[in-house]
Design a binder for these strands. Structure first.
Lengths: 341, 341
DNA sequence: AGACCGGTTGTTAACGTTCACAGTCGTCCC
DNA sequence: GGGACGACTGTGAACGTTAACAACCGGTCT
């Protein structure tokens, strides 16, 4: 007696015995194999229910060589952008029937991405989405040793992996053209860190819009995405008297810019107009509410999973490149220039 | 010919043959078993290196019945709090040698938590951290069917699972006492959604501080954490002439309150003082910079993993309850009341 | 000298699933 | 009426690892 106390969870064989069939038939029922008599199927289902059987996915993964797990590598998921993207990825992956295993990188060293990939490969993921916004991270993707299907988000320039991204250049244009259309002579720019592809794209869009309008592009001020760096850039800008319009590469820095302007007595949008980027949930409540460029992170996440799943099914041969358009969001931080014609 | 083109990854047996030992010896080397002659070990290691062998963790999990994967269930990881907590969890788990599998819940239905837990159980996770800030979610944890070790973050009141949380009541007290100490007659409150335990704790702390000072607690205004709901509460508050101090249950709502006050011409902190909660990265750059209560999400995440790992190793018998203290952060949104004596 | 012991190694059997193949029926067709 | 075929089911062998046990070696103890 007492030997039956520690009851191990039921396995397929237990169900088979209970239903009076072979374990293989149980497997067939579980996998929706067509050739099972409906009466048999019912008996098996009933046995499963009675025993509270749940299939062991580890054993399954061992023989099928597919774990139904997708890996996600991302930078600092504390930031709104990456967090939202990862959120979208996770939702999409789950509804596509995949588990999601996450690695958030702290630092930006190129080896980090490599290690993360190795790590996920060990775990046996079927595919990987890398949210690789830095140039260095993107480079690490260029020659990945594993045969694991990979999709880069905001990432690879190299044609080796599929890429899903928001059209940053278009976003930069949108912001700049809006300011120009209001009558501003030129538009200043507070950029993101130089090795971020997103930052680079926004700079390019800004510059292109200015050139197209035949304006001189001032020297951009470099930030690091943080409100603090925006604040510092804002202090510099506040000192210059000829600044009437600023395109800030993200909303957090824009907040810092706004703060600096407020402190220096520069009125927005009365004296200077400001446009941000991202449309974080807070930006509608800044003082003043921020005109900005919205990125549909959720769509990016969803698309990246779609592309990855397609790749898993059709073989690794079809690389894709998918671009999500940004959207212009008009609020109250922009107006005609002070001395406006 | 051509039959050797599709090369499957090497397995233990391949390494064994290469090194001239049995596969079991390879296993021993891999698992740091003490009784292996160092010369043998070297030979095995060399073979591993030469063949580029990587151990198959799925097969390993099948036989050991441990996946070295931890599950995380969380709500809307787009919010700063959950995102930071999950980030801390992930970092800690990884450095403890565990993989992390994530499920982000969209809605708050109580069945959602249950489903997520089932889902993770299927995957074979060794343990689970549930970031369950709602009362309903916490209840779902009360009677979880799986024998899976579980740790709740900001969650369970029930003594069935270990809990790690920030001391919300203390936070509420801190905020309120600060305002009282500045000389405010009483302190208004904009609360979070009523079924959130965090919201409840902050209300309790606020109320306790007022009572202790012998003040009447006004009716709290209910928000939903969003800047928008803070904005609406702010509009209401702006209309009342006797309001001189407001404790807002999170920084995002505080932003909304600030915005509403600005629009209505109510000066902060000149006429009304405002205190927030969380200390999100933006709040130092609000106008004015927000006095707030900081939660150390990172520590919460780390502790929850520590507790969980301890439980994994010592057996499920030792439930723990760990409380992280909040910290007061003084900035520029609070001052003495206008007519201050 | 024989028993015993610790260090080192190999052999065999799990773990729980799916895959490949081989049956067993009954039906249809020529 | 016999062969072919389709629907359904069962049997055995993988998958790649660790656990349990046996075996061998040299040395020490009695």
């Amino acid at each position: 007696m007492g030997s039956r106390l520690e009851r191990r969870p039921p396995v397929m064989a237990d169900v088979a015995k209970e239903a009076g069939v072979s374990h293989q038939t149980v497997s067939r029922v579980l996998n929706d194999h067509p050739n099972v008599r409906s009466e048999t199927r019912a008996r098996v289902l009933q046995a499963i229910d009675k025993l509270g059987y749940r299939r062991n996915l580890v054993a399954r993964a061992l023989v099928t060589k597919r774990s139904r797990t997708l890996g996600v590598v991302s930078f600092d998921t504390t930031l709104y952008g990456p967090a939202s993207t990862v959120y979208g990825i996770e939702q999409a992956a789950r509804s596509a029937g995949y588990f999601v295993s996450i690695v958030s990188l702290k630092s930006i060293d190129p080896g980090g991405v490599r290690d993360a990939l190795d790590y996920l490969a060990d775990q046996g993921v079927d595919g990987v989405v890398v949210v690789a916004p830095q140039r260095s991270a993107a480079r690490a993707l260029a020659d990945l040793p594993h045969g694991i299907p990979t999709v880069a988000v905001e990432g690879g320039e190299a044609g080796k992996v599929s890429v899903v991204s928001v059209d940053q250049v278009a976003g930069g244009r949108l912001a700049t053209e809006h300011l120009l259309s209001l009558g501003h002579e030129t538009v200043w720019h507070v950029s993101g860190p130089s090795d971020w592809l997103e930052a680079e794209g926004r700079v390019a869009g800004w510059r292109a819009a200015l050139e197209q309008a035949g304006r001189q592009a001032p020297q951009p001020l470099a930030g690091d995405w943080s409100p603090r760096s925006g604040y510092e850039a804002g202090r510099s800008l506040a000192r210059m008297t000829d600044v009437t319009a600023v395109f800030v590469a993200n909303d957090q820095m824009a907040l810092g810019v706004l703060r600096a302007f407020t402190e220096q007595g520069v009125r927005v949008p009365g004296q200077v107009s400001v446009v941000g980027f991202d449309d974080i949930p807070e930006s509608a409540y800044f003082s003043p509410p921020l005109t900005t460029i919205r990125q549909d992170f959720d769509a990016v996440g969803r698309h990246s999973i779609e592309v990855l799943v397609r790749q898993l099914e059709n073989g690794p041969e079809d690389r894709e490149r998918l671009v999500v358009p940004p959207a212009f969001v008009l609020r109250a931080s922009t107006a005609r220039p002070p001395g406006g014609r």
